[in-house]
Design a protein around this nucleic acid. Structure first.
Length: 428
RNA sequence: GUGGGCGUAGCUCAGUCGGUUAGAGCGCCAGGUUGUGGCCCUGGAGGUCGGGGGUUCAAUUCCCCUCGCUCACCCCA
């Protein structure tokens, strides 16, 4: 009882200094890449009104919502970032200059069963572009994903992005026979076929044809949808899609653009990618390790109607979420996790209490004037011990102040890497 | 939710076919004299062997229950 209370709840993590240094290393790359692409960072509360997340397309994400009621208010921990950002965009829609490039690095919560690469609390890097209807936005985002993968040291062939388009499927189904009479069933159909890899062909068929389900199409139509998921070449879809399909042209254009980014060999068309969230409307994509030994590293797509559905203006948008858990697993598998040792510029040590005021002045000056990270030895300690600790803390210099130095108005500066010792005058 | 694996020192783990004071490595602390680190040497602290119950002369070891961790499946990102 008392012992289990001392453990973090299941699916959550404590971050000790060494863990946090590694996390900062990863987040540092998230932020650096986003800034390199001209994105600005934003943040929002981890707590939102439950209603911001509730949609009706059978998405599993809603069953996994951490929700509670407090003083008659129904609240939830954010399971993903997009709705919060959408809320922020709506609030200032009138004054925002589009296209808008925003990114976040946030903690998100989903109550789900644990497996490798999946936790209940995780961090997610999010990049979104608001107000750009062209696939130039998708291309830029996918390029950012690869920039991150390069930055953290993953070999180029290690990760592949699979791309598809809900719009392509939607056009095909609505202008064809399958959903001609009920285009509103499309989001639910996407949620159903997103389960393809898990429940297989028969499972999807069952979901699609269930007369009491939210899709309810016929056997032949379900067969068409299932066969569609098997497409791995964009050209192969051509015979099914309507003539002059804008979605088809968009995909073609996206692959051309990605070629210009030098990413042609790292992206593939894959019709089985649809994503589990109901709000996607156009291009969707997911990144996987080439061996497919892990879950998706990231996923994203276009959601041109989300803002409207939340009661805001119509602003097209595209974005992705990139979790911290799977990438760290992959880096660990590939032995690409960096050491991230502790770093300190200096340790300042007064040999006796008489020298302490001077030591304090030295530490203060180093912190203030050189902006150094300085550890001041607080208690009485033997020099031997101080040196060993300074070494372990990754300190560059030891500032040693004893009676001899104090008498000369100096401080001894030992370079802990070279062992070289010099003196600096004490200036106050 | 189903099934497997595992819970022994702060960490990683050995071990006990049931039997004296339960071990190692790393880490931690102290020392190898007086103001010089990383190496080495010596010593030390630290464990109700996850918890409860049962079998037994005797349980960390066997059995049952329980809690926790973990992996896979299920399901989702």
């Amino acid at each position: 009882m008392s012992k289990s209370r001392l453990q973090p709840p299941r699916g959550t993590r404590d971050f000790y200094p060494e863990d946090l240094r590694r996390r900062d290393w990863l987040f540092g790359h998230f932020r650096a890449v986003a800034r390199r692409f001209g994105f600005e960072e934003v943040d929002a509360p981890i707590l939102e009104h439950e209603g911001l997340f509730t949609r009706k397309a059978g998405e599993e994400i809603l069953e996994q919502l951490y929700r509670f009621e407090l003083h008659d208010r129904r609240l939830a921990l954010r399971p993903e970032m997009t709705p919060s950002i959408a809320r922020m965009v709506i609030a200032r829609a009138g004054s925002l200059r589009l296209p808008l490039r925003w990114f976040t690095v946030t903690q998100n919560w989903r109550y789900e069963r644990m497996t490798r690469g999946r936790k209940r609390e995780h961090y997610q890097w999010n990049m979104d572009i608001w107000g750009e209807p062209a696939v130039t936005a998708e291309a830029e985002l996918i390029a950012a994903v690869f920039a991150l993968l390069d930055a953290v040291g993953l070999a180029r062939p290690d990760v592949r992005v699979r791309i598809s388009s809900r719009a392509l499927l939607e056009e095909t189904l609505v202008q064809g026979t399958v959903l001609r009479d009920r285009p509103e069933a499309f989001p639910a159909l996407c949620v159903a076929i997103d389960k393809f890899e898990r429940i297989g062909e028969d499972g999807v068929r069952e979901l699609l044809t269930d007369p009491d389900g939210s899709v309810g199409i016929g056997e032949a139509d379900a067969s068409f949808v299932v066969s569609w998921l098997g497409l791995r070449k964009l050209e192969d879809s051509a015979e099914h899609v309507p003539a002059g399909s804008p979605a088809y042209a968009d995909l073609r254009r996206l692959f051309e653009l990605l070629d210009a980014y030098g990413l042609a060999d790292r992206v593939v068309f894959d019709a089985s990618i649809v994503r589990g969230l109901a709000y996607y409307t156009g291009i969707v994509f997911e990144a996987f390790d080439a061996a497919r030994s892990l879950r998706a590293l990231c996923g994203g797509g276009r959601y041109d109607r989300l803002l409207e559905s939340l009661g805001g203006p119509s602003i097209p948008a595209v974005g992705f979420g990139f979790g911290d858990v799977v990438i760290l697993e992959l880096l660990s598998d590939r032995e690409r996790l960096p050491e991230c040792p502790r770093r300190l510029d200096a340790v300042v040590f007064a040999l006796g209490e008489a020298e302490r005021p001077s030591a304090i002045r030295i530490a203060t000056a180093l912190r203030r004037e050189r902006n150094w990270s300085v550890e001041l030895v607080l208690g009485a300690s033997r020099l031997k011990r101080v040196l060993a600790d300074a070494d372990r803390a990754g300190a560059r210099f030891l500032y040693l102040l004893g009676p001899e130095e104090a008498a000369r108005g100096e401080v001894l500066v030992r370079d802990l890497e070279s062992g070289e010792q010099t003196t600096e005058p004490i200036s106050d």
